[in-house]
């Protein structure tokens, strides 16, 4: 038998950082928040702004469910603090389309049945939007590789690929 303690031998003293005012521009709208500086962008969206379309799947940047667009570039919102994104243009799934007016990728995901439980889906779609604007993915292999930061436990990858490819091909057609 031995005694162990959950706590580290030299613990930091128990204390709190003060909250601060943070302004976030999300989907074209400014939001003023009073939050602790260690609040992640993901938690700011979900817990303070009720923008729950952005999902938490690991909180460690390992699954991609929390993918959002910052100035059009995809990031894991769980790996960014909200205070770091002041002054940036943040786009979440709610800013892409509505049930009445779907974004082409949202429509393609429905048409190709590119999801089952739907939990990774907003992250997949935001990631695909970012991927297309990066302009690097033209072939199936490239899309597979560049969509590999977004896990789907239901295993809808084949249909995700087909949905994204449909939009990529349309973009290439209209772009060229």
């Amino acid at each position: 038998m031995s005694q162990v303690s959950h706590a580290l031998p030299t613990r930091p003293s128990v204390s709190l950082a003060p909250t601060q005012a943070v302004t976030l521009r999300i989907n074209g709208q400014d939001h003023l928040l009073q939050i602790a500086p260690w609040t992640t962008l993901l938690d700011a969206l979900r817990e303070y702004l009720d923008l729950t379309g952005t999902k938490k799947g690991c909180d460690h940047g390992q699954c991609g469910a929390c993918t959002v667009l910052i100035n059009g570039k995809r990031i894991n919102s769980c790996l960014s603090l909200a205070v770091m994104q002041q002054g940036e243009e943040i786009t979440t799934i709610e800013g892409l389309g509505t049930e009445e007016q779907l974004h082409p990728l949202q429509q393609a995901f429905i048409d190709h049945d590119a999801f089952q439980c739907g939990y990774c889906t907003p992250g997949q779609i935001c990631s695909a939007v970012g991927l297309i604007s990066e302009g690097r993915a033209r072939t199936e292999d490239e899309v597979r590789e560049l969509m590999s930061g977004n896990l789907c436990r239901c295993g809808a990858y084949t249909n995700i690929l087909n949905a994204v490819m449909e939009v990529v091909r349309n973009e290439l057609k209209t772009g060229s």
């Binding site: 892409l96 049930e99 779907l102 429509q107 995901f109 739907g118 907003p122 779609i125």
Partner: peptide
């Protein structure tokens, strides 16, 4: 339930 899932409304 597709529209709700792809828009984050679900």
């Amino acid at each position: 339930d597709g529209p709700a899932k792809v828009t984050g409304a679900a």
